[in-house]
Design a protein around this nucleic acid. Structure first.
Lengths: 214, 214
DNA sequence: TAGATTGTTAATCGATTAACAATC
DNA sequence: TAGATTGTTAATCGATTAACAATC
């Protein structure tokens, strides 16, 4: 395992490799080559080798990488073996779905509890997690030393929730509200922006249809 | 409105501008400068100008861009004024939530109906949309000339659903399953990959905490 | 006119790809 | 040994940023 400061581009591909390696059947060969991974994922083989080299040096000429070791290294580098406790603000449909989703564990995340401004939502969910009044956010975040927050409130309330999170000591925010958030520069906001995703789809479509005509 | 072939990077920022412009209060000035937009969104002002120039030439020195015109141009370029009919495969929690979400209209998308392999799910949802048996996918896609599909099934079934979509004439796929899909090269797959989002958050966190120590 | 702001051309930066030596 | 495969160094490509002329 080498030192960090991986570029964003690399950091976005590493989980894809891990996902693929995890999906290999138990009776698959012990070793896998960068060439195979590249073909399977539609990437360049040099890129795969370079990405993997930035994480470990488990590759052996002629043989490839031992799958189980590679999985371990990737999990370590990506921090999937430690658990990040995370809170959610907004206990609407989305907030509740995120709170209930078990799959986050696979990525080293644990959705601890949700907060909502509507105090009538306070209580336990079906999956045994707590929803608290928003007024308790700061106290509870400090207590549990929460560093990651999810914003699942309407756009209008997102900035004020964001400010409150920053005040509560949160350092990284996963924002599902369709609005740009202003934060101090040591705070990271990752926007889960459906608009962006959808634009890529529809622009591809336009291109395809234009090509067909010409 | 200029010609297309916008780079992916630009295409991902345009919806952010549009979102911001739409969020301006009704009593805001008629015109806005690239400088203001850049500051507000934390981007470079040259970048904003270049991005906007790739879409229109509404900018006037000393004055800036007329907000309402800019919104119209962006909506036109991004295709938000025509409607893309879209189907969803997988009527679990996620599939149903996507089917019910009204907000897609703002991005020119219309979730028409969902399909599920479990035929007991067949019927109307609360929001008046149909869930059909998966076996009817091909027929209905051809009938309605659907070009965009959403995959909201577990990873194990995603590839076969994907193949079926391609067979049904779908050209762009929005994939929520945590697995890489193999498709013919004229088909676009956009992965809504939580693993990728989360990695960026946790790696930022690690950096922040390391800095604090040193 | 002076100055703010645009849009373009050139320079820089970063990421991907190609070429190749090292090695099992 | 021969050949497949790794990892690194250099070349290319694309995107961002800087510099500057045009203009209202």
């Amino acid at each position: 395992m080498k030192q960090n400061s991986l570029s964003k581009a690399v950091l976005e591909r590493l989980p894809v490799y891990l996902q693929y390696l995890r999906s290999l059947p138990a009776n698959a060969p012990e070793n896998i080559s960068a060439t195979t991974i590249a073909n399977e994922l539609g990437l360049g083989e040099v890129q795969v080798r370079k990405d993997l080299a930035s994480v470990c040096n488990l590759g052996r000429p002629r043989i490839g990488y031992m799958v189980s070791c590679l999985i371990n290294e990737l999990e370590a580098v990506l921090g999937y073996n430690k658990i990040n406790d995370t809170i959610i603000v907004g206990a609407g449909k989305l907030g509740k779905a995120l709170l209930a989703y078990e799959g986050f564990k696979n990525y080293g995340f644990n959705m601890v509890s949700a907060f909502d401004i509507d105090e009538s939502k306070t209580g336990l969910t079906e999956t045994g997690k707590n929803i608290y009044p928003l007024s308790e956010l700061k106290k509870r975040c400090k207590e549990m030393q929460i560093k990651i927050g999810v914003i699942a409130v309407p756009a209008e309330q997102a900035q004020s929730v964001c400010d409150l999170m920053v005040e509560s000591g949160i350092l990284a925010i996963w924002n599902f509200a369709p609005i740009h958030l202003n934060v101090p520069k040591n705070i990271l906001v990752h926007n889960e922006n459906m608009a962006t995703s959808l634009v890529l789809l529809s622009s591809h479509l336009t291109e395809q249809l234009n090509e067909r005509q010409s």
